[in-house]
Design a protein around this nucleic acid. Structure first.
Length: 422
RNA sequence: GGAGAGGUGCCGGAGUGGUUGAACGGGGCGGCCUGCUAAGUCGUUGUAGGUUACGGCCUACCGAGGGUUCGAAUCCCUCCCUCUCCGCCA
Protein backbone atom coordinates (compact mmCIF):
# COMPACT_ATOMS: atom_id res chain seq x y z
CA UNK A 1 0.00 0.00 0.00
CA UNK A 2 1.13 3.52 -0.70
CA UNK A 3 1.01 6.41 1.72
CA UNK A 4 -2.07 8.54 1.10
CA UNK A 5 -0.03 11.63 1.91
CA UNK A 6 2.48 10.62 -0.73
CA UNK A 7 -0.31 10.15 -3.26
CA UNK A 8 -1.77 13.58 -2.44
CA UNK A 9 1.48 15.32 -3.18
CA UNK A 10 2.72 13.14 -6.08
CA UNK A 11 -0.42 12.65 -8.12
CA UNK A 12 1.22 12.54 -11.53
CA UNK A 13 3.98 10.21 -10.47
CA UNK A 14 1.50 7.75 -9.00
CA UNK A 15 -0.73 7.83 -12.06
CA UNK A 16 2.24 7.28 -14.30
CA UNK A 17 3.47 4.38 -12.18
CA UNK A 18 0.09 2.67 -12.32
CA UNK A 19 0.10 2.93 -16.09
CA UNK A 20 3.67 1.67 -16.41
CA UNK A 21 2.71 -1.39 -14.41
CA UNK A 22 -0.16 -2.12 -16.82
CA UNK A 23 -2.49 -1.59 -13.91
CA UNK A 24 -5.35 0.77 -13.33
CA UNK A 25 -6.72 2.63 -10.35
CA UNK A 26 -8.94 5.66 -10.20
CA UNK A 27 -6.62 8.12 -8.52
CA UNK A 28 -8.87 11.10 -9.20
CA UNK A 29 -11.79 9.37 -7.55
CA UNK A 30 -9.50 8.48 -4.63
CA UNK A 31 -8.43 12.08 -4.16
CA UNK A 32 -11.95 13.41 -4.25
CA UNK A 33 -13.12 10.83 -1.69
CA UNK A 34 -10.11 11.68 0.43
CA UNK A 35 -10.78 15.40 0.51
CA UNK A 36 -14.47 14.81 1.15
CA UNK A 37 -13.57 12.56 4.05
CA UNK A 38 -11.23 15.09 5.62
CA UNK A 39 -13.93 17.70 5.35
CA UNK A 40 -16.49 15.57 7.18
CA UNK A 41 -13.88 14.38 9.66
CA UNK A 42 -12.94 17.90 10.70
CA UNK A 43 -16.59 18.72 11.22
CA UNK A 44 -17.42 15.62 13.25
CA UNK A 45 -14.32 16.05 15.39
CA UNK A 46 -15.45 19.53 16.29
CA UNK A 47 -18.78 18.12 17.38
CA UNK A 48 -17.05 15.46 19.45
CA UNK A 49 -14.99 18.14 21.09
CA UNK A 50 -18.15 19.94 22.01
CA UNK A 51 -19.70 16.75 23.32
CA UNK A 52 -16.69 16.08 25.52
CA UNK A 53 -16.86 19.56 27.01
CA UNK A 54 -20.57 19.41 27.68
CA UNK A 55 -20.34 15.91 29.14
CA UNK A 56 -17.94 17.27 31.72
CA UNK A 57 -20.39 20.04 32.43
CA UNK A 58 -23.19 17.53 32.94
CA UNK A 59 -21.03 15.66 35.39
CA UNK A 60 -20.52 18.84 37.36
CA UNK A 61 -24.22 19.65 37.29
CA UNK A 62 -25.02 16.23 38.66
CA UNK A 63 -22.42 16.52 41.33
CA UNK A 64 -23.95 19.84 42.37
CA UNK A 65 -27.42 18.25 42.20
CA UNK A 66 -28.49 20.73 39.55
CA UNK A 67 -30.94 19.95 36.79
CA UNK A 68 -29.32 19.01 33.48
CA UNK A 69 -32.24 17.70 31.45
CA UNK A 70 -32.07 20.54 29.00
CA UNK A 71 -28.45 20.15 27.95
CA UNK A 72 -28.82 16.37 27.97
CA UNK A 73 -31.64 16.70 25.46
CA UNK A 74 -29.49 19.01 23.39
CA UNK A 75 -26.58 16.60 23.52
CA UNK A 76 -28.80 13.76 22.42
CA UNK A 77 -29.25 15.62 19.16
CA UNK A 78 -25.54 16.28 18.85
CA UNK A 79 -24.82 12.62 19.46
CA UNK A 80 -27.24 11.61 16.73
CA UNK A 81 -25.51 13.94 14.32
CA UNK A 82 -22.15 12.52 15.32
CA UNK A 83 -23.39 9.01 14.75
CA UNK A 84 -24.61 9.93 11.30
CA UNK A 85 -21.37 11.64 10.38
CA UNK A 86 -19.29 8.80 11.79
CA UNK A 87 -21.15 6.48 9.45
CA UNK A 88 -20.41 8.79 6.59
CA UNK A 89 -16.71 8.87 7.46
CA UNK A 90 -16.70 5.09 7.74
CA UNK A 91 -18.25 4.71 4.31
CA UNK A 92 -15.78 7.14 2.79
CA UNK A 93 -12.91 5.36 4.49
CA UNK A 94 -14.12 2.06 3.16
CA UNK A 95 -14.33 3.44 -0.38
CA UNK A 96 -10.87 4.97 -0.05
CA UNK A 97 -9.49 1.70 1.31
CA UNK A 98 -10.95 -0.30 -1.58
CA UNK A 99 -9.04 1.87 -4.03
CA UNK A 100 -5.86 2.10 -1.97
CA UNK A 101 -5.42 -1.66 -1.61
CA UNK A 102 -5.50 -2.06 -5.37
CA UNK A 103 -2.88 0.55 -6.24
CA UNK A 104 0.38 -1.19 -7.15
CA UNK A 105 3.75 -0.23 -5.78
CA UNK A 106 5.74 2.39 -7.65
CA UNK A 107 8.71 1.11 -9.67
CA UNK A 108 12.14 2.32 -8.59
CA UNK A 109 13.87 4.80 -10.90
CA UNK A 110 16.42 2.19 -11.96
CA UNK A 111 13.74 -0.15 -13.32
CA UNK A 112 13.69 -0.37 -17.13
CA UNK A 113 10.50 0.99 -18.65
CA UNK A 114 8.49 -1.32 -20.85
CA UNK A 115 5.11 -2.92 -21.27
CA UNK A 116 6.02 -6.61 -21.21
CA UNK A 117 8.78 -9.14 -20.62
CA UNK A 118 10.46 -8.35 -23.92
CA UNK A 119 11.66 -5.13 -22.29
CA UNK A 120 13.42 -6.92 -19.44
CA UNK A 121 17.14 -6.27 -19.42
CA UNK A 122 19.70 -9.01 -19.13
CA UNK A 123 22.23 -7.95 -16.50
CA UNK A 124 24.72 -10.79 -16.74
CA UNK A 125 25.33 -14.43 -17.55
CA UNK A 126 27.27 -16.90 -15.48
CA UNK A 127 28.71 -20.32 -16.42
CA UNK A 128 29.39 -21.95 -19.74
CA UNK A 129 26.73 -23.85 -21.55
CA UNK A 130 28.47 -27.12 -22.27
CA UNK A 131 28.16 -28.47 -25.82
CA UNK A 132 27.23 -32.13 -25.38
CA UNK A 133 28.09 -34.69 -28.08
CA UNK A 134 24.59 -36.14 -27.73
CA UNK A 135 21.14 -34.70 -27.47
CA UNK A 136 20.08 -34.65 -23.81
CA UNK A 137 16.68 -36.05 -23.07
CA UNK A 138 13.95 -33.89 -21.65
CA UNK A 139 13.72 -34.13 -17.88
CA UNK A 140 10.31 -35.79 -17.86
CA UNK A 141 11.48 -38.49 -20.25
CA UNK A 142 14.66 -39.37 -18.42
CA UNK A 143 12.88 -38.89 -15.10
CA UNK A 144 10.31 -41.55 -15.92
CA UNK A 145 12.96 -43.88 -17.32
CA UNK A 146 15.02 -43.61 -14.14
CA UNK A 147 11.80 -43.92 -12.13
CA UNK A 148 12.50 -40.84 -10.06
CA UNK A 149 9.48 -38.80 -11.17
CA UNK A 150 5.94 -40.14 -11.27
CA UNK A 151 3.79 -37.79 -13.30
CA UNK A 152 0.81 -40.10 -13.59
CA UNK A 153 0.83 -40.91 -9.90
CA UNK A 154 0.55 -37.23 -9.07
CA UNK A 155 -2.32 -36.55 -11.40
CA UNK A 156 -4.15 -39.70 -10.34
CA UNK A 157 -4.28 -38.72 -6.71
CA UNK A 158 -4.66 -34.93 -7.03
CA UNK A 159 -5.17 -33.88 -10.65
CA UNK A 160 -3.14 -32.73 -13.59
CA UNK A 161 -0.06 -30.66 -12.86
CA UNK A 162 0.51 -32.46 -9.60
CA UNK A 163 3.53 -34.72 -9.57
CA UNK A 164 5.19 -37.23 -7.33
CA UNK A 165 8.88 -37.87 -6.81
CA UNK A 166 10.18 -41.31 -6.10
CA UNK A 167 13.36 -42.98 -4.92
CA UNK A 168 16.40 -40.83 -5.61
CA UNK A 169 14.10 -38.19 -7.10
CA UNK A 170 12.45 -37.79 -3.71
CA UNK A 171 15.82 -37.83 -2.01
CA UNK A 172 17.05 -35.15 -4.41
CA UNK A 173 14.33 -32.82 -3.08
CA UNK A 174 15.52 -33.37 0.45
CA UNK A 175 19.14 -32.93 -0.58
CA UNK A 176 18.48 -29.64 -2.35
CA UNK A 177 16.45 -28.29 0.55
CA UNK A 178 19.17 -29.20 3.03
CA UNK A 179 21.92 -27.84 0.84
CA UNK A 180 20.20 -24.50 0.30
CA UNK A 181 19.15 -24.01 3.91
CA UNK A 182 22.60 -24.87 5.14
CA UNK A 183 24.18 -22.39 2.74
CA UNK A 184 21.88 -19.54 3.72
CA UNK A 185 22.10 -20.26 7.43
CA UNK A 186 25.80 -21.11 7.80
CA UNK A 187 27.32 -18.85 5.21
CA UNK A 188 24.86 -16.04 4.56
CA UNK A 189 23.66 -15.47 8.11
CA UNK A 190 19.94 -16.12 7.78
CA UNK A 191 17.85 -17.57 10.59
CA UNK A 192 15.97 -20.68 9.62
CA UNK A 193 12.22 -20.51 10.06
CA UNK A 194 9.63 -23.23 9.64
CA UNK A 195 6.24 -21.52 9.34
CA UNK A 196 2.66 -22.74 8.91
CA UNK A 197 1.73 -23.68 5.35
CA UNK A 198 -1.77 -22.31 5.77
CA UNK A 199 -2.36 -18.64 6.48
CA UNK A 200 -5.30 -16.36 7.14
CA UNK A 201 -6.66 -13.53 5.03
CA UNK A 202 -4.76 -10.82 6.89
CA UNK A 203 -1.46 -12.47 6.07
CA UNK A 204 -2.34 -12.80 2.41
CA UNK A 205 -3.29 -9.14 2.41
CA UNK A 206 -0.11 -8.11 4.19
CA UNK A 207 2.21 -9.31 1.47
CA UNK A 208 -0.09 -8.14 -1.31
CA UNK A 209 -1.53 -11.39 -2.72
CA UNK A 210 -5.00 -10.27 -1.71
CA UNK A 211 -7.27 -8.84 -2.91
CA UNK A 212 -6.03 -9.03 -6.49
CA UNK A 213 -4.72 -12.59 -6.74
CA UNK A 214 -7.36 -14.53 -4.86
CA UNK A 215 -8.14 -16.66 -7.91
CA UNK A 216 -4.60 -18.00 -7.95
CA UNK A 217 -4.73 -19.28 -4.38
CA UNK A 218 -5.98 -22.52 -2.94
CA UNK A 219 -8.57 -21.61 -0.36
CA UNK A 220 -10.04 -23.67 2.47
CA UNK A 221 -13.52 -22.23 2.89
CA UNK A 222 -14.40 -23.90 6.19
CA UNK A 223 -11.63 -22.05 7.99
CA UNK A 224 -11.07 -19.22 5.52
CA UNK A 225 -7.42 -20.17 5.22
CA UNK A 226 -5.16 -20.15 2.20
CA UNK A 227 -2.44 -22.56 1.16
CA UNK A 228 0.69 -20.47 0.93
CA UNK A 229 1.82 -19.65 -2.62
CA UNK A 230 5.31 -18.88 -1.29
CA UNK A 231 7.06 -18.76 2.08
CA UNK A 232 7.18 -15.00 1.62
CA UNK A 233 3.64 -14.85 2.97
CA UNK A 234 4.01 -16.57 6.36
CA UNK A 235 7.59 -15.46 6.93
CA UNK A 236 7.05 -11.77 6.18
CA UNK A 237 3.90 -11.75 8.28
CA UNK A 238 5.76 -13.28 11.18
CA UNK A 239 6.69 -9.70 12.03
CA UNK A 240 3.34 -8.10 11.19
CA UNK A 241 2.09 -5.51 13.70
CA UNK A 242 5.53 -5.26 15.22
CA UNK A 243 7.80 -2.37 16.09
CA UNK A 244 11.44 -3.44 15.97
CA UNK A 245 14.22 -1.52 17.62
CA UNK A 246 16.84 -0.01 15.34
CA UNK A 247 19.59 -2.40 16.38
CA UNK A 248 17.44 -5.42 15.54
CA UNK A 249 17.72 -4.57 11.86
CA UNK A 250 18.43 -6.13 9.51
CA UNK A 251 16.47 -9.34 10.11
CA UNK A 252 17.25 -12.20 7.73
CA UNK A 253 14.98 -15.25 7.59
CA UNK A 254 15.16 -18.29 5.38
CA UNK A 255 12.53 -20.98 5.14
CA UNK A 256 11.75 -24.13 3.28
CA UNK A 257 8.09 -24.57 2.42
CA UNK A 258 5.99 -26.21 -0.23
CA UNK A 259 4.18 -23.66 -2.39
CA UNK A 260 0.67 -24.03 -3.76
CA UNK A 261 -0.52 -22.21 -6.85
CA UNK A 262 -3.68 -22.76 -8.82
CA UNK A 263 -2.00 -21.14 -11.83
CA UNK A 264 -5.44 -19.97 -12.90
CA UNK A 265 -5.40 -19.13 -16.56
CA UNK A 266 -1.92 -20.54 -17.07
CA UNK A 267 -3.03 -23.76 -18.73
CA UNK A 268 -1.52 -24.52 -22.06
CA UNK A 269 1.71 -22.79 -21.11
CA UNK A 270 4.71 -24.82 -19.96
CA UNK A 271 2.45 -27.64 -18.88
CA UNK A 272 4.81 -30.55 -19.32
CA UNK A 273 6.83 -32.24 -16.65
CA UNK A 274 8.05 -30.12 -13.77
CA UNK A 275 7.97 -26.72 -15.42
CA UNK A 276 4.71 -25.50 -13.97
CA UNK A 277 3.06 -27.51 -11.23
CA UNK A 278 0.46 -26.73 -8.57
CA UNK A 279 2.62 -27.79 -5.65
CA UNK A 280 6.35 -27.27 -5.53
CA UNK A 281 9.10 -26.83 -3.00
CA UNK A 282 11.09 -23.70 -2.47
CA UNK A 283 13.67 -22.28 -0.12
CA UNK A 284 12.97 -18.62 0.37
CA UNK A 285 14.97 -15.74 1.83
CA UNK A 286 13.19 -12.81 3.47
CA UNK A 287 14.79 -9.61 4.70
CA UNK A 288 13.54 -6.78 6.91
CA UNK A 289 15.89 -3.85 6.55
CA UNK A 290 16.50 -0.18 7.18
CA UNK A 291 15.01 1.88 4.32
CA UNK A 292 18.36 3.52 3.58
CA UNK A 293 20.04 0.21 2.78
CA UNK A 294 17.33 -1.72 1.00
CA UNK A 295 18.85 -1.46 -2.47
CA UNK A 296 22.22 -2.70 -1.24
CA UNK A 297 20.35 -5.49 0.52
CA UNK A 298 18.65 -6.37 -2.75
CA UNK A 299 22.03 -6.83 -4.43
CA UNK A 300 23.31 -9.08 -1.66
CA UNK A 301 20.07 -11.06 -1.66
CA UNK A 302 20.50 -11.61 -5.37
CA UNK A 303 24.11 -12.67 -4.82
CA UNK A 304 22.96 -15.18 -2.18
CA UNK A 305 20.53 -16.72 -4.64
CA UNK A 306 23.08 -16.76 -7.44
CA UNK A 307 25.54 -18.56 -5.22
CA UNK A 308 23.22 -21.55 -5.05
CA UNK A 309 23.47 -21.97 -8.80
CA UNK A 310 27.19 -21.29 -8.82
CA UNK A 311 27.80 -24.02 -6.26
CA UNK A 312 25.61 -26.38 -8.26
CA UNK A 313 27.57 -25.27 -11.29
CA UNK A 314 24.47 -24.51 -13.33
CA UNK A 315 24.68 -21.74 -15.95
CA UNK A 316 22.23 -18.90 -15.52
CA UNK A 317 21.42 -15.34 -16.42
CA UNK A 318 20.07 -12.45 -14.40
CA UNK A 319 17.34 -10.17 -15.68
CA UNK A 320 16.17 -6.84 -14.39
CA UNK A 321 12.41 -6.86 -14.83
CA UNK A 322 10.83 -3.94 -16.63
CA UNK A 323 7.95 -1.91 -15.19
CA UNK A 324 5.29 -3.90 -17.04
CA UNK A 325 6.61 -7.26 -15.83
CA UNK A 326 7.00 -6.21 -12.21
CA UNK A 327 4.60 -7.76 -9.74
CA UNK A 328 1.95 -5.75 -7.91
CA UNK A 329 3.92 -5.23 -4.69
CA UNK A 330 7.46 -4.95 -6.04
CA UNK A 331 9.44 -1.73 -6.58
CA UNK A 332 12.27 -3.59 -8.25
CA UNK A 333 12.90 -7.20 -9.14
CA UNK A 334 15.64 -9.39 -10.57
CA UNK A 335 14.82 -12.76 -12.04
CA UNK A 336 17.41 -15.51 -12.18
CA UNK A 337 16.95 -17.99 -14.99
CA UNK A 338 18.79 -21.29 -15.12
CA UNK A 339 19.79 -22.96 -18.36
CA UNK A 340 18.01 -26.25 -19.08
CA UNK A 341 19.97 -28.15 -21.68
CA UNK A 342 17.21 -30.51 -22.81
CA UNK A 343 14.55 -27.86 -23.21
CA UNK A 344 17.22 -25.59 -24.67
CA UNK A 345 16.07 -22.53 -22.80
CA UNK A 346 16.34 -20.53 -19.63
CA UNK A 347 13.85 -21.18 -16.82
CA UNK A 348 13.03 -18.80 -14.00
CA UNK A 349 14.21 -20.22 -10.68
CA UNK A 350 14.28 -17.10 -8.56
CA UNK A 351 12.78 -13.66 -8.21
CA UNK A 352 14.56 -11.27 -5.89
CA UNK A 353 12.45 -8.24 -5.06
CA UNK A 354 12.55 -5.09 -3.02
CA UNK A 355 9.08 -4.09 -1.87
CA UNK A 356 10.34 -1.01 -0.06
CA UNK A 357 7.65 -0.07 2.49
CA UNK A 358 4.72 -1.40 0.43
CA UNK A 359 4.30 -4.67 2.34
CA UNK A 360 5.47 -3.14 5.60
CA UNK A 361 2.64 -0.63 5.43
CA UNK A 362 0.09 -3.35 4.69
CA UNK A 363 1.39 -5.70 7.37
CA UNK A 364 2.33 -2.87 9.76
CA UNK A 365 5.99 -3.74 10.26
CA UNK A 366 7.93 -0.84 11.73
CA UNK A 367 11.12 0.02 13.56
CA UNK A 368 12.38 2.76 15.82
CA UNK A 369 15.79 4.14 15.00
CA UNK A 370 16.27 4.91 18.69
CA UNK A 371 13.96 4.85 21.72
CA UNK A 372 12.76 8.42 21.14
CA UNK A 373 12.31 8.39 17.40
CA UNK A 374 9.05 7.98 15.60
CA UNK A 375 8.33 4.49 14.26
CA UNK A 376 9.06 4.12 10.56
CA UNK A 377 8.15 1.35 8.17
CA UNK A 378 10.91 -1.12 7.41
CA UNK A 379 11.68 -2.20 3.88
CA UNK A 380 10.98 -5.83 3.07
CA UNK A 381 12.69 -7.96 0.45
CA UNK A 382 12.53 -11.54 -0.56
CA UNK A 383 14.04 -13.89 -3.06
CA UNK A 384 13.85 -17.53 -3.91
CA UNK A 385 16.94 -19.38 -3.06
CA UNK A 386 15.79 -21.38 -5.05
CA UNK A 387 12.59 -22.89 -6.42
CA UNK A 388 13.23 -26.62 -6.64
CA UNK A 389 11.45 -28.09 -9.65
CA UNK A 390 13.25 -26.03 -12.24
CA UNK A 391 16.54 -26.50 -10.45
CA UNK A 392 15.83 -30.22 -10.66
CA UNK A 393 15.07 -29.86 -14.38
CA UNK A 394 18.43 -28.14 -14.87
CA UNK A 395 20.27 -30.84 -12.93
CA UNK A 396 18.52 -33.62 -14.83
CA UNK A 397 19.15 -32.08 -18.21
CA UNK A 398 22.59 -30.52 -17.68
CA UNK A 399 24.16 -33.32 -15.65
CA UNK A 400 22.88 -35.99 -17.97
CA UNK A 401 25.33 -38.50 -19.50
CA UNK A 402 25.07 -40.28 -22.82
CA UNK A 403 24.34 -43.47 -20.88
CA UNK A 404 21.07 -42.01 -19.65
CA UNK A 405 22.27 -41.42 -16.09
CA UNK A 406 22.50 -38.22 -14.08
CA UNK A 407 25.66 -37.19 -12.28
CA UNK A 408 24.96 -35.79 -8.82
CA UNK A 409 26.49 -32.30 -8.41
CA UNK A 410 29.41 -32.33 -5.97
CA UNK A 411 27.77 -30.20 -3.32
CA UNK A 412 24.76 -32.50 -3.13
CA UNK A 413 26.64 -35.76 -2.73
CA UNK A 414 26.90 -35.66 1.01
CA UNK A 415 23.14 -35.23 1.18
CA UNK A 416 22.36 -37.78 -1.54
CA UNK A 417 24.73 -40.53 -0.49
CA UNK A 418 25.32 -41.40 -4.14
CA UNK A 419 27.34 -39.91 -7.01
CA UNK A 420 25.11 -40.94 -9.87
CA UNK A 421 21.39 -41.43 -10.40
CA UNK A 422 20.99 -44.46 -12.60
C1' G B 1 -15.24 -31.07 20.64
C1' G B 2 -16.69 -30.04 26.24
C1' A B 3 -15.83 -27.03 30.92
C1' G B 4 -13.51 -22.92 33.12
C1' A B 5 -10.24 -18.42 33.39
C1' G B 6 -8.43 -14.31 30.97
C1' G B 7 -7.04 -10.47 27.13
C1' U B 8 -5.39 -2.89 29.88
C1' G B 9 0.67 1.21 27.98
C1' C B 10 7.68 -1.53 26.74
C1' C B 11 6.61 -5.29 30.96
C1' G B 12 3.97 -6.61 35.57
C1' G B 13 -0.50 -5.04 37.40
C1' A B 14 -4.89 -1.58 39.40
C1' G B 15 -9.24 0.23 37.68
C1' U B 16 -16.79 -1.94 37.10
C1' G B 17 -20.46 4.53 34.02
C1' G B 18 -18.27 11.22 34.70
C1' U B 19 -10.89 15.59 34.36
C1' U B 20 -8.48 7.83 33.45
C1' G B 21 -4.31 8.33 28.04
C1' A B 22 -5.12 5.56 32.22
C1' A B 23 -3.08 4.52 39.80
C1' C B 24 1.18 1.69 41.60
C1' G B 25 5.71 -1.05 40.54
C1' G B 26 9.50 -2.36 37.04
C1' G B 27 12.10 -1.13 32.55
C1' G B 28 13.83 2.69 29.00
C1' C B 29 15.55 7.69 28.23
C1' G B 30 17.59 12.58 30.28
C1' G B 31 19.73 15.28 34.52
C1' C B 32 22.02 15.29 39.40
C1' C B 33 25.05 12.42 42.63
C1' U B 34 29.45 9.10 42.09
C1' G B 35 37.05 7.91 41.40
C1' C B 36 34.34 3.64 38.57
C1' U B 37 30.22 0.34 39.09
C1' A B 38 26.03 -0.53 42.01
C1' A B 39 22.69 2.15 44.87
C1' G B 40 20.18 6.85 45.44
C1' U B 41 17.52 11.05 43.53
C1' C B 42 14.62 14.44 40.25
C1' G B 43 12.29 14.60 35.63
C1' U B 44 10.49 12.21 31.36
C1' U B 45 8.44 8.19 28.69
C1' G B 46 2.41 5.33 23.51
C1' U B 47 0.19 5.21 18.55
C1' A B 48 -2.68 6.96 14.55
C1' G B 49 -5.45 10.76 12.15
C1' G B 50 -7.15 15.85 11.29
C1' U B 51 -5.77 20.92 11.64
C1' U B 52 -2.07 24.60 12.21
C1' A B 53 -0.20 31.42 12.64
C1' C B 54 4.58 24.96 13.08
C1' G B 55 4.04 27.02 19.20
C1' G B 56 0.47 24.14 19.40
C1' C B 57 -4.77 22.67 19.16
C1' C B 58 -8.35 18.77 18.40
C1' U B 59 -10.16 13.61 17.71
C1' A B 60 -9.68 8.44 18.31
C1' C B 61 -7.45 4.15 20.50
C1' C B 62 -7.57 -0.30 27.28
C1' G B 63 -7.99 -7.92 21.89
C1' A B 64 -11.55 -6.74 17.20
C1' G B 65 -16.33 -5.11 15.58
C1' G B 66 -21.22 -3.50 16.83
C1' G B 67 -24.90 -1.65 20.65
C1' U B 68 -26.87 1.07 25.19
C1' U B 69 -25.95 6.19 27.29
C1' C B 70 -25.63 13.27 27.44
C1' G B 71 -21.01 10.45 28.69
C1' A B 72 -17.96 3.58 28.24
C1' A B 73 -11.48 0.66 29.74
C1' U B 74 -15.89 0.11 32.82
C1' C B 75 -22.81 -2.22 30.99
C1' C B 76 -24.89 -5.53 26.62
C1' C B 77 -24.10 -8.55 21.93
C1' U B 78 -20.92 -10.98 18.23
C1' C B 79 -16.19 -12.56 16.85
C1' C B 80 -10.83 -13.53 17.55
C1' C B 81 -6.78 -14.99 20.57
C1' U B 82 -4.20 -17.00 25.06
C1' C B 83 -4.08 -20.19 29.38
C1' U B 84 -5.92 -24.54 32.56
C1' C B 85 -8.60 -29.19 32.86
C1' C B 86 -11.27 -33.21 30.19
C1' G B 87 -12.05 -35.77 25.52
C1' C B 88 -10.05 -37.00 20.68
C1' C B 89 -5.71 -37.55 17.73
C1' A B 90 -0.13 -37.85 14.24
Amino acid sequence: MLDIKYIRSNVDKVKQAVTMKNDHADIDQLLSLDSKKREVLTEVEELKHKRNLVSEQIAEFKKAKQDATEIIAEMRQVSDTIKRMDDEVRELDQAIHEIMIRIPNIPHDSVPIGRDESYNIEIRRWGDIEKKHFKPELHFDIGEKLDIIDLKGGSKIAGSSFISYKGLGARLQRALISFMLELHVEKHGYTEVYPPFLVNRDSMFGTGQLPKMEEDMYHIPGDDLFCIPTAEVPVTNLLSNTVLSGEQLPVYYTAYTPCFRREAGAYGKDTRGLIRIHQFDKVEMVKFVHPASSYDELESLLANAEEVLQLLNLPYRVLSLCTGDLSFAAAKCYDIEVWADGLGKYLEVSSCSNFEDFQARRANIRFKENPHSKPEYVHTLNGSGLALPRTVIAIMENYQTDEGTIIVPDVLRKFMGVDVIK
